[in-house]
């Protein structure tokens, strides 16, 4: 493969934030016509911290589709109220899959924040979230 003319930087991760999510009871929609079983874990609370910022989870959900191929796809959405008053929206898509015997959640995350607010820089980067099976914290990595 000729890659001589490709000079863009190779991406990497850097840990940025930790998020503890308290979920409410899971809602089960059942098996849907487009394939798979739909369910939703609503966010009931939690905490978000890193890089000098901290806040509380005030809303959101992880919407799951347990697909016919055995993979669980996840659409995640979180609302975080930061100390100081800024509210940020994080959203992304990913999967729950087995990694070395652990059924881990991995999803992409983008942020929406007030452009004049203290968290505006969050919206200028892309992130990956990972939560190991049984772990209480979701680790959010910035893609650099």
């Amino acid at each position: 493969m000729d890659t001589q003319d490709f000079t863009a930087p190779e991406p990497a991760f850097e840990p940025a934030f930790e998020m503890r999510i308290d979920f409410g009871d899971t809602h089960h929609v059942g098996h849907i016509a487009t394939g798979g079983a739909r369910s939703c874990r609503p966010v009931a609370g939690g905490a978000f911290a890193g890089e000098g910022f901290s806040g509380s989870l005030v809303g959101g959900s992880e919407t799951l589709l347990h697909r016919a191929d055995g993979v669980t796809s996840v659409e995640a959405e979180y609302y975080i109220a930061f100390v100081g008053g800024d509210v940020v929206h994080a959203f992304g898509k990913g999967y729950e899959v087995l990694h070395n015997g652990s059924r881990d959640l991995r999803c992409t995350l983008l942020f929406e924040a007030d452009e004049q607010g203290a968290l505006a820089a969050l919206a200028t980067r892309a992130f990956i979230a990972e939560r190991r099976e049984g772990a209480s914290d979701t680790i959010i990595y910035r893609i650099v």
């Binding site: 930087p9 991995r106 200028t124 893609i143």
Partner: peptide, 29 residues
């Protein structure tokens, strides 16, 4: 400039179905 993509794929069952359960990170030029 910062430019990063996170693509998702839908592939048929078979040799490419790893695309259906994998997170990707991309850069563009």
């Amino acid at each position: 400039y910062y430019m990063r993509m996170t693509p998702r794929f839908e592939a048929p069952a078979g040799p490419y179905d790893w695309l259906n359960r994998t997170i990707f990170v991309g850069v563009g030029q």
